[in-house]
Amino acid sequence: MRSEGKLLREAIIVHYYLGVDIGSVSSNFVLMDQYGNIREKVYLRTLGNPVKAIKEGFAQIKSRQGEQLDIRGVGTTGSGRHLADVLLGADVVKNEITAHAVAASALFPGVRTIIEIGGQDSKIIILKNGIVQDFAMNTVCAAGTGSFLDQQAARLNIAIEDFGDYAVRSRQGIRIAGRCGVFAESDMIHKQQMGYPAEDIIMGLCEALVRNYLNNVAKGKKIEEPIVFQGGVAANAGIKKAFEKVLNSQVQVPEPYEVMGAIGSAMLAQEQRAQSQAPGNYRGDDFILEGEFKSSSHECKGCPNLCEVVCIKRNQEILAYWGDRCKKWENSINRQDKLQVI
């Protein structure tokens, strides 16, 4: 029966929704069909060049599918969501909180707590009946997020993918100060020079990060089951284990943990398209694949704020400006007489 339904489904012409999550460390892409099935997922390192990452991610999806894709809607999220919007033409440009919450409650109906740890930020989202009731993000400090783990893995010469396995092998984590990334690092070096095994130090680091997360980000929030742990750091089994130990409850990691933001934005795009009669904003495959995208920046001398204005160009055409506090450059985009850097 099941395969028959599947065959039937494939016989009907499908259309797709593209979800894009451009984060500080990774860029994620998801191609979802109209039934909510994830057809493709791509996880790339942003490597400091989001424009290139967006182009490459899209090209990968396209080459794997190998056919003309009928993309009806695009949703973008992550700190690079506006950039992705300019390059792809998005129907929904949403913050990460909403995107993650939408994806998690679709995959785990009834989820109460979402722990999300990404490259530069960490969040906690509290839901009730599928609706966000409360959330918090880390404040000014990025200690205890993915980039710090990355950096420590590089220092210990361990591939970040194996970091979690090392931690899980440990029998007893060493106490590491987790309050601040700099202190944690010197503490780790100190323990390492005293001769503690790397496994135990890494497990200690995982526990420290979890402590830091619970004391800072999740401070004062009631963490109730079911708990879902997602974001790039969810790949680290050591962190998951540490969370389970401290919270004394089960923590679930979704299979597509690293692309949950992208899934959420694809769902939001579908939701938006269903409500709207207007044609979608998607700029088309050729726009992204054929164009030569360039970004440049200049210091605007219009006032003492000296804003660093970013300009995104496709071939010779100016697509977007941002970074100006007064929006003088940004607003000129829709006018005939676009401001130009001389």
Partner: peptide, 27 residues
Amino acid sequence: EHSGEGGLVTRLEAFCDMLRRRRMRGE
């Protein structure tokens, strides 16, 4: 001192979204 506005905007958007989506559900 940081002049990057991204973090602030994300939090404000998420906050407003949360309040609006909650209302949309009729809760």
